[in-house]
Design a protein around this nucleic acid. Structure first.
Lengths: 292, 292
DNA sequence: CTGTATCTATAACGTGAGGTTATGGATGTG
DNA sequence: CACATCCATAACCTCACGTTATAGATACAG
Protein backbone atom coordinates (compact mmCIF):
# COMPACT_ATOMS: atom_id res chain seq x y z
CA UNK A 1 0.00 0.00 0.00
CA UNK A 2 1.08 3.51 -0.89
CA UNK A 3 0.90 6.69 1.19
CA UNK A 4 -0.21 8.45 -2.00
CA UNK A 5 -3.31 6.22 -2.16
CA UNK A 6 -3.99 6.96 1.50
CA UNK A 7 -3.65 10.72 1.00
CA UNK A 8 -6.02 10.50 -1.99
CA UNK A 9 -8.47 8.51 0.13
CA UNK A 10 -8.24 10.99 3.00
CA UNK A 11 -8.90 13.93 0.69
CA UNK A 12 -11.97 12.29 -0.78
CA UNK A 13 -13.21 11.37 2.69
CA UNK A 14 -12.75 14.96 3.85
CA UNK A 15 -14.33 16.60 0.78
CA UNK A 16 -17.09 14.05 0.23
CA UNK A 17 -16.72 14.72 -3.49
CA UNK A 18 -14.24 13.41 -6.07
CA UNK A 19 -14.18 16.58 -8.11
CA UNK A 20 -13.31 18.86 -5.21
CA UNK A 21 -10.81 16.36 -3.76
CA UNK A 22 -9.09 16.15 -7.16
CA UNK A 23 -8.75 19.94 -7.20
CA UNK A 24 -7.29 19.91 -3.70
CA UNK A 25 -4.78 17.22 -4.75
CA UNK A 26 -3.89 18.83 -8.10
CA UNK A 27 -4.85 15.74 -10.09
CA UNK A 28 -7.68 15.16 -12.56
CA UNK A 29 -10.98 13.72 -11.34
CA UNK A 30 -10.67 10.51 -13.43
CA UNK A 31 -7.20 9.89 -11.95
CA UNK A 32 -8.67 10.13 -8.47
CA UNK A 33 -11.61 7.89 -9.38
CA UNK A 34 -9.17 5.25 -10.61
CA UNK A 35 -6.96 5.45 -7.52
CA UNK A 36 -9.87 5.16 -5.10
CA UNK A 37 -11.19 2.17 -7.02
CA UNK A 38 -7.75 0.57 -6.91
CA UNK A 39 -7.57 1.03 -3.14
CA UNK A 40 -11.00 -0.59 -2.83
CA UNK A 41 -9.81 -3.50 -5.02
CA UNK A 42 -6.63 -3.94 -2.96
CA UNK A 43 -8.62 -4.09 0.26
CA UNK A 44 -11.51 -6.00 -1.30
CA UNK A 45 -13.92 -3.62 0.44
CA UNK A 46 -16.17 -0.73 -0.64
CA UNK A 47 -14.99 2.36 1.17
CA UNK A 48 -17.49 4.83 -0.31
CA UNK A 49 -21.14 4.83 -1.21
CA UNK A 50 -21.50 6.68 -4.48
CA UNK A 51 -24.41 8.96 -5.20
CA UNK A 52 -25.22 12.07 -7.11
CA UNK A 53 -24.40 14.14 -4.05
CA UNK A 54 -20.94 12.65 -3.92
CA UNK A 55 -18.97 10.08 -1.98
CA UNK A 56 -20.12 9.05 1.50
CA UNK A 57 -17.92 6.85 3.65
CA UNK A 58 -19.19 3.36 4.36
CA UNK A 59 -18.61 1.70 7.77
CA UNK A 60 -15.30 0.17 6.68
CA UNK A 61 -14.44 3.49 4.99
CA UNK A 62 -14.94 5.25 8.31
CA UNK A 63 -12.69 2.73 10.06
CA UNK A 64 -9.99 3.46 7.49
CA UNK A 65 -10.54 7.22 7.71
CA UNK A 66 -9.98 7.05 11.47
CA UNK A 67 -6.69 5.22 11.10
CA UNK A 68 -5.14 6.93 8.13
CA UNK A 69 -3.89 10.02 9.99
CA UNK A 70 -1.99 7.77 12.41
CA UNK A 71 -0.48 5.80 9.57
CA UNK A 72 0.61 8.89 7.68
CA UNK A 73 2.04 10.36 10.85
CA UNK A 74 3.95 7.12 11.40
CA UNK A 75 5.49 7.63 7.97
CA UNK A 76 6.33 11.25 8.69
CA UNK A 77 7.89 10.48 12.05
CA UNK A 78 9.97 7.75 10.46
CA UNK A 79 11.27 10.02 7.72
CA UNK A 80 12.15 12.62 10.29
CA UNK A 81 13.94 10.15 12.55
CA UNK A 82 15.96 8.84 9.61
CA UNK A 83 16.88 12.33 8.47
CA UNK A 84 17.74 13.41 12.01
CA UNK A 85 20.13 10.49 12.31
CA UNK A 86 21.62 11.28 8.92
CA UNK A 87 22.21 14.86 10.01
CA UNK A 88 23.72 13.75 13.30
CA UNK A 89 26.12 11.40 11.55
CA UNK A 90 27.07 14.11 9.07
CA UNK A 91 27.64 16.45 12.04
CA UNK A 92 25.01 18.90 10.84
CA UNK A 93 22.90 20.94 13.26
CA UNK A 94 19.63 21.89 11.65
CA UNK A 95 18.36 25.28 12.82
CA UNK A 96 14.99 26.57 11.68
CA UNK A 97 14.31 30.26 11.40
CA UNK A 98 11.81 32.82 10.22
CA UNK A 99 12.52 35.93 8.16
CA UNK A 100 15.77 37.53 9.41
CA UNK A 101 16.37 34.95 12.14
CA UNK A 102 18.31 36.64 14.98
CA UNK A 103 19.23 39.63 12.84
CA UNK A 104 22.91 40.66 13.08
CA UNK A 105 23.43 38.18 15.90
CA UNK A 106 22.90 35.28 13.51
CA UNK A 107 26.35 35.25 11.91
CA UNK A 108 27.91 35.76 15.35
CA UNK A 109 26.07 32.68 16.58
CA UNK A 110 27.10 30.57 13.63
CA UNK A 111 30.73 31.72 13.85
CA UNK A 112 30.77 31.18 17.60
CA UNK A 113 29.42 27.68 17.24
CA UNK A 114 31.93 26.89 14.49
CA UNK A 115 34.70 27.80 16.92
CA UNK A 116 33.24 25.66 19.67
CA UNK A 117 32.47 22.67 17.44
CA UNK A 118 34.72 22.90 14.39
CA UNK A 119 33.72 19.46 13.14
CA UNK A 120 30.06 20.49 13.00
CA UNK A 121 28.13 22.63 10.53
CA UNK A 122 24.97 24.66 11.12
CA UNK A 123 22.36 24.28 8.42
CA UNK A 124 19.90 27.18 8.51
CA UNK A 125 16.43 26.14 7.38
CA UNK A 126 13.98 28.90 6.56
CA UNK A 127 10.33 28.29 7.34
CA UNK A 128 7.18 30.02 6.22
CA UNK A 129 4.99 31.97 8.62
CA UNK A 130 2.39 29.25 8.52
CA UNK A 131 4.62 27.53 11.07
CA UNK A 132 5.67 29.84 13.91
CA UNK A 133 7.81 27.02 15.35
CA UNK A 134 10.00 27.15 12.19
CA UNK A 135 9.95 23.41 11.66
CA UNK A 136 10.44 22.45 15.29
CA UNK A 137 6.92 21.11 15.80
CA UNK A 138 7.31 18.84 12.78
CA UNK A 139 10.67 17.57 13.88
CA UNK A 140 12.37 18.86 10.74
CA UNK A 141 14.96 20.82 12.71
CA UNK A 142 16.95 20.36 15.91
CA UNK A 143 16.20 23.88 17.22
CA UNK A 144 14.74 27.10 15.89
CA UNK A 145 15.07 30.87 16.09
CA UNK A 146 11.51 32.01 16.62
CA UNK A 147 9.52 35.16 17.30
CA UNK A 148 7.46 35.26 20.49
CA UNK A 149 4.66 34.96 21.33
CA UNK A 150 3.17 32.02 19.45
CA UNK A 151 0.58 29.39 20.33
CA UNK A 152 2.10 26.32 21.95
CA UNK A 153 5.34 28.03 22.92
CA UNK A 154 4.99 26.53 26.41
CA UNK A 155 5.79 23.13 24.90
CA UNK A 156 9.36 24.19 24.11
CA UNK A 157 12.40 25.29 26.00
CA UNK A 158 13.03 28.97 25.25
CA UNK A 159 15.96 31.32 25.57
CA UNK A 160 15.15 34.94 24.76
CA UNK A 161 18.02 36.39 22.79
CA UNK A 162 16.98 39.92 21.88
CA UNK A 163 14.13 42.39 21.99
CA UNK A 164 13.51 45.11 19.43
CA UNK A 165 10.79 47.69 18.90
CA UNK A 166 8.29 47.19 16.13
CA UNK A 167 7.66 49.60 13.30
CA UNK A 168 5.24 49.74 10.36
CA UNK A 169 6.09 48.86 6.78
CA UNK A 170 4.15 50.64 4.05
CA UNK A 171 4.42 51.53 0.38
CA UNK A 172 6.40 54.74 -0.20
CA UNK A 173 3.38 56.38 -1.82
CA UNK A 174 1.21 55.86 1.22
CA UNK A 175 -0.14 59.17 2.65
CA UNK A 176 1.04 58.27 6.15
CA UNK A 177 4.56 57.73 4.81
CA UNK A 178 5.15 61.51 5.16
CA UNK A 179 5.05 61.34 8.95
CA UNK A 180 8.38 60.49 10.60
CA UNK A 181 6.69 58.78 13.55
CA UNK A 182 3.27 57.21 13.82
CA UNK A 183 0.94 56.25 16.60
CA UNK A 184 -0.77 52.89 16.36
CA UNK A 185 -4.15 54.60 16.66
CA UNK A 186 -3.40 56.17 13.27
CA UNK A 187 -3.28 52.68 11.76
CA UNK A 188 -6.46 51.13 13.15
CA UNK A 189 -8.44 51.49 9.93
CA UNK A 190 -5.63 50.58 7.53
CA UNK A 191 -5.81 47.24 5.69
CA UNK A 192 -3.06 44.90 6.90
CA UNK A 193 -0.93 42.25 5.27
CA UNK A 194 -1.35 39.32 7.67
CA UNK A 195 0.04 35.86 8.37
CA UNK A 196 -2.21 32.83 7.77
CA UNK A 197 -5.20 32.57 10.10
CA UNK A 198 -4.15 29.18 11.44
CA UNK A 199 -1.13 30.71 13.18
CA UNK A 200 -3.66 32.10 15.69
CA UNK A 201 -1.97 34.00 18.50
CA UNK A 202 1.11 34.71 16.38
CA UNK A 203 -0.88 36.50 13.70
CA UNK A 204 -2.92 38.38 16.35
CA UNK A 205 0.34 39.68 17.82
CA UNK A 206 1.49 41.02 14.47
CA UNK A 207 -1.90 42.64 13.94
CA UNK A 208 -1.59 44.15 17.45
CA UNK A 209 -5.08 42.86 18.22
CA UNK A 210 -4.58 43.62 21.93
CA UNK A 211 -3.96 47.29 21.17
CA UNK A 212 -7.02 47.77 19.00
CA UNK A 213 -9.53 48.32 21.77
CA UNK A 214 -12.04 46.09 20.00
CA UNK A 215 -11.46 47.47 16.49
CA UNK A 216 -11.32 44.46 14.16
CA UNK A 217 -8.29 44.32 11.88
CA UNK A 218 -8.88 44.86 8.17
CA UNK A 219 -7.03 42.22 6.15
CA UNK A 220 -5.74 43.37 2.77
CA UNK A 221 -3.71 40.23 2.00
CA UNK A 222 -2.39 37.05 3.56
CA UNK A 223 1.20 35.96 2.95
CA UNK A 224 3.55 33.27 4.24
CA UNK A 225 6.98 34.37 3.01
CA UNK A 226 8.99 37.57 3.31
CA UNK A 227 9.11 38.04 -0.45
CA UNK A 228 5.35 37.74 -0.83
CA UNK A 229 4.91 39.97 2.18
CA UNK A 230 7.13 42.68 0.70
CA UNK A 231 5.39 42.45 -2.67
CA UNK A 232 1.98 42.77 -1.09
CA UNK A 233 3.10 45.86 0.84
CA UNK A 234 4.84 47.44 -2.15
CA UNK A 235 1.73 46.86 -4.24
CA UNK A 236 -0.40 48.68 -1.69
CA UNK A 237 -2.49 45.70 -0.55
CA UNK A 238 -1.85 46.79 3.00
CA UNK A 239 0.63 47.75 5.65
CA UNK A 240 2.25 45.52 8.22
CA UNK A 241 3.89 45.66 11.60
CA UNK A 242 7.51 44.61 11.36
CA UNK A 243 10.55 44.30 13.57
CA UNK A 244 12.62 47.48 13.54
CA UNK A 245 15.44 45.47 11.94
CA UNK A 246 13.25 44.92 8.88
CA UNK A 247 14.31 48.37 7.65
CA UNK A 248 17.86 47.00 7.44
CA UNK A 249 17.16 43.40 6.40
CA UNK A 250 14.26 44.11 4.07
CA UNK A 251 15.07 47.50 2.61
CA UNK A 252 13.28 47.70 -0.75
CA UNK A 253 12.60 50.49 -3.20
CA UNK A 254 8.98 51.53 -2.78
CA UNK A 255 8.75 50.46 0.86
CA UNK A 256 9.30 52.69 3.89
CA UNK A 257 9.51 51.80 7.55
CA UNK A 258 8.22 54.17 10.22
CA UNK A 259 8.52 53.91 14.04
CA UNK A 260 5.20 53.24 15.79
CA UNK A 261 4.21 54.18 19.32
CA UNK A 262 1.67 52.26 21.34
CA UNK A 263 2.58 48.64 20.57
CA UNK A 264 4.81 46.19 22.44
CA UNK A 265 8.19 45.12 21.02
CA UNK A 266 9.09 41.81 19.43
CA UNK A 267 11.35 39.17 20.98
CA UNK A 268 13.58 36.67 19.23
CA UNK A 269 14.13 33.42 21.10
CA UNK A 270 15.92 30.13 20.52
CA UNK A 271 13.47 27.24 20.98
CA UNK A 272 14.43 23.61 21.46
CA UNK A 273 12.84 20.34 22.62
CA UNK A 274 13.47 18.57 25.92
CA UNK A 275 16.66 16.54 26.36
CA UNK A 276 19.02 18.37 24.04
CA UNK A 277 22.23 16.50 23.38
CA UNK A 278 25.66 17.93 24.12
CA UNK A 279 26.01 19.47 20.66
CA UNK A 280 22.73 21.32 20.88
CA UNK A 281 23.60 22.48 24.42
CA UNK A 282 26.77 24.03 23.00
CA UNK A 283 24.68 25.79 20.39
CA UNK A 284 22.35 27.10 23.11
CA UNK A 285 25.34 28.41 25.04
CA UNK A 286 26.65 30.05 21.90
CA UNK A 287 23.31 31.81 21.43
CA UNK A 288 23.29 33.00 25.04
CA UNK A 289 26.81 34.40 24.67
CA UNK A 290 25.96 36.12 21.38
CA UNK A 291 22.92 37.74 22.99
CA UNK A 292 24.89 39.48 25.77
CA UNK B 1 6.07 5.91 0.28
CA UNK B 2 5.13 2.36 -0.59
CA UNK B 3 4.97 -0.68 1.69
CA UNK B 4 6.57 -2.64 -1.16
CA UNK B 5 9.67 -0.41 -0.94
CA UNK B 6 9.74 -0.91 2.83
CA UNK B 7 9.45 -4.69 2.50
CA UNK B 8 12.27 -4.68 -0.04
CA UNK B 9 14.37 -2.55 2.31
CA UNK B 10 13.65 -4.85 5.25
CA UNK B 11 14.66 -7.93 3.28
CA UNK B 12 17.96 -6.38 2.23
CA UNK B 13 18.61 -5.22 5.78
CA UNK B 14 17.94 -8.74 7.06
CA UNK B 15 20.00 -10.54 4.40
CA UNK B 16 22.83 -8.04 4.15
CA UNK B 17 23.07 -8.95 0.47
CA UNK B 18 21.05 -7.83 -2.55
CA UNK B 19 21.31 -11.13 -4.38
CA UNK B 20 19.96 -13.21 -1.52
CA UNK B 21 17.27 -10.64 -0.63
CA UNK B 22 16.14 -10.66 -4.27
CA UNK B 23 15.79 -14.43 -4.13
CA UNK B 24 13.77 -14.17 -0.92
CA UNK B 25 11.46 -11.59 -2.54
CA UNK B 26 11.12 -13.41 -5.87
CA UNK B 27 12.43 -10.48 -7.89
CA UNK B 28 15.64 -10.04 -9.88
CA UNK B 29 18.70 -8.51 -8.24
CA UNK B 30 18.75 -5.43 -10.54
CA UNK B 31 15.10 -4.73 -9.68
CA UNK B 32 15.99 -4.71 -6.00
CA UNK B 33 19.06 -2.54 -6.58
CA UNK B 34 16.85 0.01 -8.34
CA UNK B 35 14.16 -0.01 -5.65
CA UNK B 36 16.63 0.45 -2.81
CA UNK B 37 18.28 3.33 -4.66
CA UNK B 38 14.88 4.91 -5.21
CA UNK B 39 14.06 4.70 -1.50
CA UNK B 40 17.41 6.36 -0.74
CA UNK B 41 16.61 9.12 -3.26
CA UNK B 42 13.13 9.68 -1.79
CA UNK B 43 14.57 10.02 1.71
CA UNK B 44 17.68 11.86 0.52
CA UNK B 45 19.75 9.59 2.77
CA UNK B 46 22.13 6.66 2.25
CA UNK B 47 20.66 3.68 4.02
CA UNK B 48 23.36 1.13 3.12
CA UNK B 49 27.11 1.09 2.85
CA UNK B 50 28.00 -0.98 -0.21
CA UNK B 51 30.96 -3.27 -0.27
CA UNK B 52 32.07 -6.51 -1.81
CA UNK B 53 30.74 -8.39 1.16
CA UNK B 54 27.32 -6.89 0.65
CA UNK B 55 25.07 -4.20 2.06
CA UNK B 56 25.63 -2.96 5.59
CA UNK B 57 23.12 -0.63 7.20
CA UNK B 58 24.28 2.90 7.89
CA UNK B 59 23.18 4.75 11.06
CA UNK B 60 20.07 6.21 9.35
CA UNK B 61 19.49 2.81 7.75
CA UNK B 62 19.43 1.26 11.20
CA UNK B 63 16.95 3.87 12.41
CA UNK B 64 14.70 2.97 9.48
CA UNK B 65 15.17 -0.76 10.01
CA UNK B 66 14.02 -0.36 13.62
CA UNK B 67 10.85 1.45 12.61
CA UNK B 68 9.79 -0.44 9.52
CA UNK B 69 8.25 -3.40 11.35
CA UNK B 70 6.00 -1.03 13.30
CA UNK B 71 4.96 0.77 10.14
CA UNK B 72 4.18 -2.45 8.29
CA UNK B 73 2.25 -3.71 11.29
CA UNK B 74 0.30 -0.46 11.33
CA UNK B 75 -0.67 -1.17 7.72
CA UNK B 76 -1.62 -4.74 8.51
CA UNK B 77 -3.70 -3.80 11.53
CA UNK B 78 -5.50 -1.18 9.48
CA UNK B 79 -6.34 -3.61 6.70
CA UNK B 80 -7.63 -6.07 9.26
CA UNK B 81 -9.76 -3.50 11.05
CA UNK B 82 -11.28 -2.39 7.75
CA UNK B 83 -12.00 -5.94 6.69
CA UNK B 84 -13.41 -6.85 10.09
CA UNK B 85 -15.81 -3.93 9.85
CA UNK B 86 -16.75 -4.94 6.32
CA UNK B 87 -17.48 -8.46 7.52
CA UNK B 88 -19.48 -7.18 10.47
CA UNK B 89 -21.60 -4.98 8.24
CA UNK B 90 -22.16 -7.86 5.83
CA UNK B 91 -23.12 -10.04 8.81
CA UNK B 92 -20.35 -12.53 8.15
CA UNK B 93 -18.59 -14.39 10.96
CA UNK B 94 -15.09 -15.38 9.89
CA UNK B 95 -13.98 -18.68 11.41
CA UNK B 96 -10.46 -19.97 10.82
CA UNK B 97 -9.72 -23.66 10.83
CA UNK B 98 -7.03 -26.23 10.16
CA UNK B 99 -7.42 -29.44 8.21
CA UNK B 100 -10.79 -31.06 9.09
CA UNK B 101 -11.78 -28.33 11.55
CA UNK B 102 -14.09 -29.92 14.18
CA UNK B 103 -14.68 -33.03 12.11
CA UNK B 104 -18.34 -34.12 11.89
CA UNK B 105 -19.28 -31.48 14.46
CA UNK B 106 -18.45 -28.72 12.01
CA UNK B 107 -21.65 -28.83 9.93
CA UNK B 108 -23.66 -29.18 13.14
CA UNK B 109 -22.05 -26.02 14.45
CA UNK B 110 -22.67 -24.09 11.27
CA UNK B 111 -26.27 -25.29 11.05
CA UNK B 112 -26.86 -24.54 14.71
CA UNK B 113 -25.51 -21.04 14.37
CA UNK B 114 -27.59 -20.44 11.24
CA UNK B 115 -30.69 -21.24 13.29
CA UNK B 116 -29.65 -18.95 16.10
CA UNK B 117 -28.63 -16.07 13.84
CA UNK B 118 -30.40 -16.53 10.51
CA UNK B 119 -29.27 -13.12 9.24
CA UNK B 120 -25.63 -14.08 9.66
CA UNK B 121 -23.34 -16.31 7.64
CA UNK B 122 -20.29 -18.25 8.76
CA UNK B 123 -17.31 -17.99 6.46
CA UNK B 124 -14.88 -20.82 7.04
CA UNK B 125 -11.27 -19.80 6.35
CA UNK B 126 -8.71 -22.56 6.04
CA UNK B 127 -5.21 -21.83 7.27
CA UNK B 128 -1.93 -23.56 6.70
CA UNK B 129 -0.08 -25.34 9.49
CA UNK B 130 2.48 -22.59 9.61
CA UNK B 131 -0.11 -20.78 11.71
CA UNK B 132 -1.52 -22.95 14.50
CA UNK B 133 -3.88 -20.09 15.48
CA UNK B 134 -5.58 -20.43 12.07
CA UNK B 135 -5.51 -16.73 11.33
CA UNK B 136 -6.52 -15.58 14.82
CA UNK B 137 -3.12 -14.17 15.75
CA UNK B 138 -3.09 -12.08 12.59
CA UNK B 139 -6.60 -10.80 13.14
CA UNK B 140 -7.82 -12.27 9.86
CA UNK B 141 -10.64 -14.17 11.54
CA UNK B 142 -13.05 -13.57 14.40
CA UNK B 143 -12.47 -17.00 15.99
CA UNK B 144 -10.81 -20.27 15.04
CA UNK B 145 -11.13 -24.02 15.39
CA UNK B 146 -7.66 -25.07 16.50
CA UNK B 147 -5.75 -28.14 17.62
CA UNK B 148 -4.15 -28.04 21.07
CA UNK B 149 -1.50 -27.61 22.26
CA UNK B 150 0.22 -24.75 20.48
CA UNK B 151 2.63 -22.03 21.57
CA UNK B 152 0.84 -18.91 22.77
CA UNK B 153 -2.49 -20.63 23.36
CA UNK B 154 -2.65 -18.94 26.77
CA UNK B 155 -3.27 -15.63 24.99
CA UNK B 156 -6.68 -16.81 23.78
CA UNK B 157 -9.92 -17.88 25.29
CA UNK B 158 -10.38 -21.60 24.65
CA UNK B 159 -13.31 -23.99 24.69
CA UNK B 160 -12.35 -27.62 24.18
CA UNK B 161 -14.90 -29.24 21.91
CA UNK B 162 -13.71 -32.79 21.36
CA UNK B 163 -10.87 -35.20 22.01
CA UNK B 164 -9.84 -38.02 19.73
CA UNK B 165 -7.05 -40.58 19.73
CA UNK B 166 -4.20 -40.17 17.31
CA UNK B 167 -3.13 -42.73 14.75
CA UNK B 168 -0.34 -42.99 12.18
CA UNK B 169 -0.66 -42.30 8.48
CA UNK B 170 1.66 -44.20 6.13
CA UNK B 171 1.93 -45.27 2.55
CA UNK B 172 0.07 -48.54 1.89
CA UNK B 173 3.30 -50.22 0.80
CA UNK B 174 5.02 -49.48 4.10
CA UNK B 175 6.17 -52.70 5.87
CA UNK B 176 4.51 -51.62 9.11
CA UNK B 177 1.22 -51.22 7.25
CA UNK B 178 0.62 -54.98 7.71
CA UNK B 179 0.19 -54.59 11.48
CA UNK B 180 -3.34 -53.70 12.61
CA UNK B 181 -2.11 -51.78 15.65
CA UNK B 182 1.23 -50.18 16.33
CA UNK B 183 3.12 -49.02 19.33
CA UNK B 184 4.84 -45.64 19.14
CA UNK B 185 8.13 -47.29 20.02
CA UNK B 186 7.88 -49.03 16.65
CA UNK B 187 7.94 -45.66 14.95
CA UNK B 188 10.87 -43.97 16.67
CA UNK B 189 13.28 -44.45 13.79
CA UNK B 190 10.84 -43.74 10.99
CA UNK B 191 11.22 -40.50 8.99
CA UNK B 192 8.30 -38.13 9.66
CA UNK B 193 6.40 -35.64 7.59
CA UNK B 194 6.45 -32.59 9.86
CA UNK B 195 4.92 -29.13 10.16
CA UNK B 196 7.19 -26.09 9.72
CA UNK B 197 9.81 -25.64 12.42
CA UNK B 198 8.55 -22.22 13.39
CA UNK B 199 5.33 -23.69 14.78
CA UNK B 200 7.51 -24.90 17.70
CA UNK B 201 5.46 -26.67 20.34
CA UNK B 202 2.72 -27.56 17.86
CA UNK B 203 5.08 -29.46 15.59
CA UNK B 204 6.74 -31.13 18.61
CA UNK B 205 3.33 -32.41 19.68
CA UNK B 206 2.69 -33.94 16.28
CA UNK B 207 6.16 -35.54 16.31
CA UNK B 208 5.37 -36.85 19.82
CA UNK B 209 8.69 -35.44 21.01
CA UNK B 210 7.68 -36.02 24.65
CA UNK B 211 7.23 -39.74 24.03
CA UNK B 212 10.58 -40.24 22.34
CA UNK B 213 12.68 -40.60 25.48
CA UNK B 214 15.38 -38.42 23.95
CA UNK B 215 15.34 -40.01 20.49
CA UNK B 216 15.46 -37.15 17.96
CA UNK B 217 12.79 -37.20 15.28
CA UNK B 218 13.90 -37.93 11.74
CA UNK B 219 12.31 -35.44 9.33
CA UNK B 220 11.53 -36.81 5.87
CA UNK B 221 9.59 -33.76 4.63
CA UNK B 222 8.03 -30.51 5.81
CA UNK B 223 4.54 -29.54 4.64
CA UNK B 224 1.99 -26.85 5.45
CA UNK B 225 -1.20 -28.06 3.81
CA UNK B 226 -3.21 -31.26 3.99
CA UNK B 227 -2.78 -31.94 0.27
CA UNK B 228 0.99 -31.60 0.43
CA UNK B 229 1.03 -33.64 3.60
CA UNK B 230 -0.93 -36.48 1.95
CA UNK B 231 1.28 -36.41 -1.14
CA UNK B 232 4.45 -36.57 0.94
CA UNK B 233 3.10 -39.57 2.87
CA UNK B 234 1.82 -41.36 -0.26
CA UNK B 235 5.18 -40.81 -1.92
CA UNK B 236 6.94 -42.43 1.01
CA UNK B 237 8.82 -39.37 2.27
CA UNK B 238 7.70 -40.27 5.73
CA UNK B 239 4.88 -41.15 8.07
CA UNK B 240 2.87 -38.80 10.25
CA UNK B 241 0.77 -38.80 13.36
CA UNK B 242 -2.79 -37.82 12.56
CA UNK B 243 -6.13 -37.46 14.32
CA UNK B 244 -8.14 -40.67 14.15
CA UNK B 245 -10.71 -38.80 12.06
CA UNK B 246 -8.12 -38.41 9.32
CA UNK B 247 -8.96 -41.94 8.16
CA UNK B 248 -12.45 -40.62 7.39
CA UNK B 249 -11.64 -37.08 6.24
CA UNK B 250 -8.43 -37.86 4.39
CA UNK B 251 -9.02 -41.35 3.01
CA UNK B 252 -6.76 -41.68 -0.04
CA UNK B 253 -5.69 -44.59 -2.22
CA UNK B 254 -2.15 -45.57 -1.23
CA UNK B 255 -2.44 -44.29 2.35
CA UNK B 256 -3.41 -46.35 5.38
CA UNK B 257 -4.11 -45.25 8.93
CA UNK B 258 -3.19 -47.46 11.88
CA UNK B 259 -4.03 -46.99 15.59
CA UNK B 260 -1.01 -46.15 17.75
CA UNK B 261 -0.50 -46.87 21.42
CA UNK B 262 1.68 -44.79 23.66
CA UNK B 263 0.86 -41.24 22.58
CA UNK B 264 -1.65 -38.76 23.98
CA UNK B 265 -4.79 -37.84 22.03
CA UNK B 266 -5.52 -34.64 20.15
CA UNK B 267 -8.01 -31.99 21.20
CA UNK B 268 -10.00 -29.59 19.03
CA UNK B 269 -10.87 -26.27 20.62
CA UNK B 270 -12.56 -23.06 19.65
CA UNK B 271 -10.26 -20.09 20.28
CA UNK B 272 -11.31 -16.45 20.41
CA UNK B 273 -9.95 -13.10 21.60
CA UNK B 274 -11.04 -11.18 24.69
CA UNK B 275 -14.26 -9.18 24.56
CA UNK B 276 -16.26 -11.17 22.03
CA UNK B 277 -19.36 -9.40 20.83
CA UNK B 278 -22.86 -10.87 21.15
CA UNK B 279 -22.70 -12.60 17.77
CA UNK B 280 -19.46 -14.37 18.56
CA UNK B 281 -20.81 -15.33 21.99
CA UNK B 282 -23.73 -17.02 20.23
CA UNK B 283 -21.27 -18.90 18.04
CA UNK B 284 -19.33 -20.01 21.12
CA UNK B 285 -22.57 -21.28 22.70
CA UNK B 286 -23.40 -23.13 19.50
CA UNK B 287 -20.00 -24.84 19.58
CA UNK B 288 -20.47 -25.82 23.22
CA UNK B 289 -23.87 -27.30 22.44
CA UNK B 290 -22.56 -29.19 19.43
CA UNK B 291 -19.76 -30.64 21.53
CA UNK B 292 -22.09 -32.23 24.14
C1' DC C 1 50.12 -12.82 -10.84
C1' DT C 2 46.08 -14.66 -13.03
C1' DG C 3 41.67 -16.72 -13.28
C1' DT C 4 37.46 -17.36 -11.00
C1' DA C 5 33.68 -16.36 -8.00
C1' DT C 6 30.68 -13.18 -6.09
C1' DC C 7 28.59 -9.01 -5.38
C1' DT C 8 26.43 -4.54 -6.97
C1' DA C 9 25.32 -1.33 -10.91
C1' DT C 10 23.95 -0.14 -15.52
C1' DA C 11 21.90 -0.82 -20.24
C1' DA C 12 18.27 -2.08 -23.07
C1' DC C 13 13.79 -3.72 -23.44
C1' DG C 14 8.66 -4.85 -22.58
C1' DT C 15 4.47 -4.34 -19.98
C1' DG C 16 1.45 -1.99 -17.20
C1' DA C 17 0.47 1.89 -13.93
C1' DG C 18 -0.72 6.70 -13.36
C1' DG C 19 -1.62 10.60 -15.28
C1' DT C 20 -4.19 13.42 -19.09
C1' DT C 21 -8.40 15.01 -22.13
C1' DA C 22 -12.75 13.79 -23.98
C1' DT C 23 -16.93 12.09 -23.19
C1' DG C 24 -20.75 9.11 -21.35
C1' DG C 25 -24.31 8.00 -17.89
C1' DA C 26 -27.09 9.14 -14.03
C1' DT C 27 -29.53 12.24 -11.26
C1' DG C 28 -31.37 16.50 -9.41
C1' DT C 29 -33.21 21.09 -10.24
C1' DG C 30 -35.38 25.06 -12.33
C1' DC D 1 -37.07 19.45 -21.10
C1' DA D 2 -32.63 21.61 -20.69
C1' DC D 3 -28.89 22.27 -17.87
C1' DA D 4 -25.70 21.52 -14.09
C1' DT D 5 -23.15 18.46 -11.47
C1' DC D 6 -21.25 14.36 -10.11
C1' DC D 7 -18.84 9.87 -10.99
C1' DA D 8 -17.14 6.35 -14.54
C1' DT D 9 -15.06 4.89 -18.77
C1' DA D 10 -12.34 5.29 -23.18
C1' DA D 11 -8.31 6.38 -25.49
C1' DC D 12 -3.86 7.96 -25.27
C1' DC D 13 1.02 9.09 -23.57
C1' DT D 14 4.86 8.84 -20.44
C1' DC D 15 7.33 6.63 -17.19
C1' DA D 16 7.90 3.10 -13.44
C1' DC D 17 8.92 -1.64 -12.45
C1' DG D 18 10.08 -5.66 -13.76
C1' DT D 19 13.22 -8.68 -16.90
C1' DT D 20 17.82 -10.47 -19.16
C1' DA D 21 22.42 -9.36 -20.41
C1' DT D 22 26.44 -7.61 -19.07
C1' DA D 23 29.91 -4.48 -16.87
C1' DG D 24 32.82 -3.19 -12.98
C1' DA D 25 34.94 -4.01 -8.64
C1' DT D 26 36.93 -6.86 -5.29
C1' DA D 27 38.43 -10.94 -2.76
C1' DC D 28 40.41 -15.36 -2.94
C1' DA D 29 42.71 -19.56 -4.46
C1' DG D 30 46.07 -21.73 -7.12
Amino acid sequence: MDTRLLRYFAAVAAEGNLTRAAERLYVSQPALTKQVKQLERELGVELFARSKSGMALTGPGRVLADRVPGLLEGWDLTQRAVKAEAARQAKVLRIGFLASAANEATPKIIAGFAKLRPQWRVEMRQSSWSDPTAGLAGGEVDAALVRLPFAGQEHWNLEELLTEPRCVAMEAAHPLAERPVLDFLDLLDEPFVAAPAETGEWRDYWLAVSQRGGHPARIGAVTEHPDDWLSAIANGYGIALAPESASRFYARPGIVYRPVNGIPPTKVALAWPDDPGPVLRDFIETCRAAAR
